Amino acid sequence: MTLSAPARRRPRDRRRQILAAAATLFWSEGYHRVGMADVATAVGIAPSALYRHVRGKQELLLAILDEHLARIEAVVAAPDGDLVDGLAALTLERREFGLLWEREAGHLPAEESRAVRHRLRAVAAGVAAAGAEADPANAELRAWAAMSVIDSPAHHRWTLAGDRFGDLLAGAARAVLTVPLPAASGEPETPARPPGLAPASRREALLAAAIRLFGEQGYPAVGLGDIGATAGIAGPSVYRHFATKTDLLLAALHRGNEALWLGLHHALARAGDAEDALTRLAADYTAFVADNPEIVSVLVSQTIHLPAPHRDELRRSQRAYLAEWVALLTAARPDLPAPEARVLVHAALALINSLARVHHLAVRPGARERIATLAGAVLAAGS
């Protein structure tokens, strides 16, 4: 008698394995560089088996965001347990969500993207309701600040041993939920943005149009024809200034990167000591982000579209810029280990990048001072 081989059974958590593998690949390589076959290989299954769970890459991205957002919603809705600790632990378990949402949401259908955005606003409302802030506007600002801090590991790969990472994130989030905020005063920070004037230089006009479109729509969704049309320049004339769309992206990223370095040098030149320099940097960086939301969006989420040599060069410069903040923070707080300072700097910058680009938050009276104060509370966390 011949014994047949035992039937192979599909693991019960196969779908979760697929989502976890795809999230890691999309996070590290970019949605545009990852194919369904790559995901199948990472899970160790045939592509045909992958399609039993999802019909395509777009559905896979939406499933990743939906799964993680559902877990966030469960933490916020839980009647017991510490909300901040729960969100910090969830982020460190699967840290890809924030960057995938910011960088890759343009690949989703508009209706699904709106649905995710609505759910995120509901999460922020839940975080605000759980806090002790009586003023509704301040409660909303603090909630988004805490969520940005907790989500900041999505934007870097640093880690800390043991429970220290989670404790540090949770402590920074609690700091922004409780730090005294300056009183609101005066008119809204920035009224509706005027159309402005176009530069006389056609090259500069193209670069300005590219920065705006890349920041609003994402690099993959924009063509050279779109950029030329926005700048009022006929298609063939674009090629006299930029041979490829990649050249425009590279120019946009260098423009933003150099602006950050210039702001840092100005802050250092005016500062009396490291603590003063950090205060100035937080204020100057907040103003830069609020005044230039599109170019910051390009810096935060579009670098991955550069070819490897240019991407590596720009990331080295970005790491060097961040190292200047870390050096100042460790000089101001000699008891703070450099790895922990790096985590706090990432969290403070993520907070500013997020809040200063949310229009209804950024235009409130005193918003910039308050955002800079919240960033300062992150840098002082655990002291």
Rank of each mutant, 00 (worst) to 15 (best):
V378L: 10
V54W: 01
R95W: 08
P180C: 09
H156E: 13
Y239T: 12
R212K: 12
E369P: 01
V343C: 08
T286Y: 02
V176G: 00
V127G: 00
D135V: 06
R142S: 08
V296G: 00
H360W: 14
L250A: 14
L60M: 12
P236E: 10
T330F: 01
R174V: 00
V326W: 02
V76M: 03
G256F: 11
L99V: 03
I18F: 08
V84W: 00
D66V: 11
L50S: 06
A146Q: 09
R319L: 14
L99E: 09
V54L: 04
P293Q: 11
R94L: 06
V296P: 02
E104C: 09
L336D: 02
A63K: 03
Y219W: 14
D226H: 14
L61F: 05
P153S: 07
H346P: 02
L100S: 02
V238Y: 10
Y321I: 11
A143P: 11
E187W: 08
G232P: 05
A269D: 15
H266D: 15
L351E: 03
S185M: 07
A380T: 10
A172T: 01
L374D: 06
L181C: 03
L328T: 04
P47A: 10
A5H: 10
A259R: 15
R270G: 11
A172D: 02
A362T: 08
V176T: 00
M36V: 14
L264Y: 15
S383F: 01
T91V: 10
A208V: 09
V176K: 02
S152C: 09
H310V: 02
R55N: 10
A367I: 05
T286K: 04
L3G: 05
A154G: 15
E96W: 14
I45G: 10
T24H: 07
E294H: 15
S4W: 06
L181H: 02
P11F: 03
T246H: 09
G223Q: 11
A290F: 03
P79G: 04
L90E: 03
L344M: 06
A23C: 04
L328W: 04
V34K: 04
V149Q: 00
L213W: 08
A308H: 11
P79Q: 02
D135H: 08
L108F: 08
L100M: 04
F288P: 02
G131E: 01
A145V: 00
Y219F: 15
M147E: 07
H241R: 07
D284H: 07
A269T: 08
V149F: 01
A89S: 12
W325P: 06
A146V: 06
K245D: 12
S185K: 07
A110S: 12
D151P: 00
D226T: 13
A320G: 15
V326P: 06
A198K: 13
A130P: 08
S301W: 00
T303V: 15
A271F: 06
P47N: 09
H265R: 15
D66G: 07
N257G: 13
E67F: 01
D291N: 12
P199F: 11
A183M: 04
A290V: 05
A77K: 03
T24L: 10
D66I: 01
A192Q: 09
G263D: 15
R319K: 10
E340C: 07
H241I: 02
L169S: 01
V34F: 04
D284P: 01
T159C: 04
L92P: 00
A145C: 06
H265M: 05
D38H: 13
D312K: 09
H305I: 03
D151V: 09
Y31H: 14
A70K: 01
V289T: 12
A161T: 06
A21S: 14
